[in-house]
Simulated scan of single mutants.
Amino acid sequence: MMKSLLLYMSIVSIIWINTGCTLTKSEEKQQPDVKISLAEWSLHRAIKSGKMDNLDFPRVAAQEFGIYAVEYVSQLFPDNNYDAAYLQQLKDSCERYHVKSTMIMVDHEGNLGDTTEVARQIAVQNHVKWLEAAEFLGCLSIRVNGNGFGTDEDVSAALVKSMRELGDLAKEKGLMVIIENHGVSMPDGSWNMNSFSSNGTRLSQVLAIANHPNVGALPDFGNFADYDKYQGVKDLLPYSFGISAKTFRFDENGEAVETDYKRIFDMVNASNFDGYIGVEFEGDGVSEHEGIKMTKALIEKYWDRIPKEQ
């Protein structure tokens, strides 16, 4: 059904009247050169409370934060779903504010490392609609969760199979499928951060075995649970298509309390990484808006891709 809707939208042209959307010279320079994106989860409180709408995300990223690339979160779409008309509105908003859609972070669509074959296949199929949405929006990738329940060997084997299948589908659409070290929903409904994918050794081994050109990693600074985060980033950097620069709290100097940004960016700077780094504030103590600005400032301070003022 999604394919027929997308076909319909490709036939029916929608005229967008661009009013007052001319880029300033500084914006023209920043947009293509600076690969900083904004993870929508940074604003999940505002969206879930109704203070902000998913469709307004591109405008907020550009006008309030000077960020011209966005990472959507599937669960922040209305009812965790969409139709072609909704996607067109989102695409129009991006075009109006000169924002690049880079990724959809997909949650609650089943465990790709499920050791029950039927459940694993259902999880793979559940992700297809988000690949189609990402293709329509002009994204570069979808982010998936690489978890399951069972022995490491069994979960790993199931996850490798799922990633190869999704990688084949993504290749047809010119997309990447990237795994984030992430928590998992337990059978009782609770959330457990200490999941299969939160271990850098396990996840990097899966990626090495999958060995698919359209499959990669999205290391998140804050989601390694009991595994050393610096080792985890080091494990995943060779496979990284993107990075989530997670923050929770800041000290009086504006540095992240939980993560040594200089230490972690020394590794990023020494690697061959050339993707987007996403601003993802998930803490408290400051507002979402202030947390986003402070996280962006840390990326600009330590990432050598960003030109520094003389």
Rank of each mutant, 00 (worst) to 15 (best):
F136G: 04
H44E: 06
D228I: 13
I36K: 11
V257C: 10
L175F: 06
T295Y: 01
V177P: 03
M294V: 10
L236C: 06
Q89G: 14
D304P: 00
D260A: 02
Q88T: 11
N211I: 10
N81W: 04
Q88G: 02
G232V: 11
N147Y: 07
N147P: 06
E255G: 00
L159Y: 11
I243W: 00
A85R: 12
T19Q: 11
S156K: 15
A245H: 10
E28T: 14
V257K: 11
E252Q: 14
F281I: 09
I17R: 12
K296H: 07
K308Q: 15
C139W: 04
E64G: 05
K29S: 08
V73Y: 02
M294P: 00
I209D: 09
F65E: 07
M1G: 09
K171D: 01
G278S: 15
E95L: 14
S204G: 12
V73R: 03
R59F: 06
K35T: 07
S185T: 14
E64D: 15
A39N: 14
A123C: 08
Q310C: 01
A297L: 04
K3V: 12
V106C: 05
D251G: 08
I122P: 00
S74P: 05
M105S: 14
T22S: 13
M103K: 06
Y97E: 12
A217H: 12
T19F: 07
S93K: 13
K173E: 00
G148S: 02
A84R: 00
I11D: 04
S195V: 08
